[in-house]
């Protein structure tokens, strides 16, 4: 009896976990970012910066599409910690992917849940060398 009840409840639980506003962005994060920035967006030691609750991201909203496409090779400070390893760009992600991805990250972990439109992302990308 208990088992049956659990079986009935299981799909509900699964559905709950799936109730994400940006499933495509979430999938892209998992496939292209989580390897380094870690599933929960926390980064790794002082080698890889966090993307969850990052003050650097909040202060550089306009740069984020370009960082994803072209990478970043700089010494930066994120939440008071210095990072200086290089991130290579992820050219596999197209403009739509980047928009979904950024909205997912902002929604999930951003300080002010900034929303990007496809137009914003295209405009910002055009300013960094397309």
């Amino acid at each position: 009896m208990l088992k049956r009840l659990l079986l009935l409840l299981l799909p509900l639980v699964l559905l709950q976990c799936d109730a994400n506003t940006y499933p495509d962005g979430a999938a892209a994060y998992k496939a292209y970012c989580a390897g380094c920035h870690v599933e929960g967006g926390t980064g790794l030691g002082t080698l890889i910066p966090p993307v969850a609750g990052s003050d650097y991201m909040a202060a550089n909203l306009k740069k984020l599409p370009c960082i994803i496409r072209y990478g970043l090779k700089d010494t930066i400070v994120v939440n008071g910690v210095v990072y200086s390893e290089e991130m290579v760009g992820i050219p596999q992600l197209n403009d739509v992917d980047i928009t979904n991805l950024l909205n997912y990250i902002q929604h999930e972990w951003g300080a002010q849940d900034h929303h990007y439109t496809l137009g914003d992302v295209r405009q910002l990308l055009s300013e960094c060398g397309e």
Partner: peptide
């Protein structure tokens, strides 16, 4: 150390 793609991911898993 200056490995741009695979190593950081492997290090995340090693950690």
């Amino acid at each position: 150390i200056h490995c741009p793609t695979i190593c950081p991911k492997v290090k995340v898993q090693c950690k």
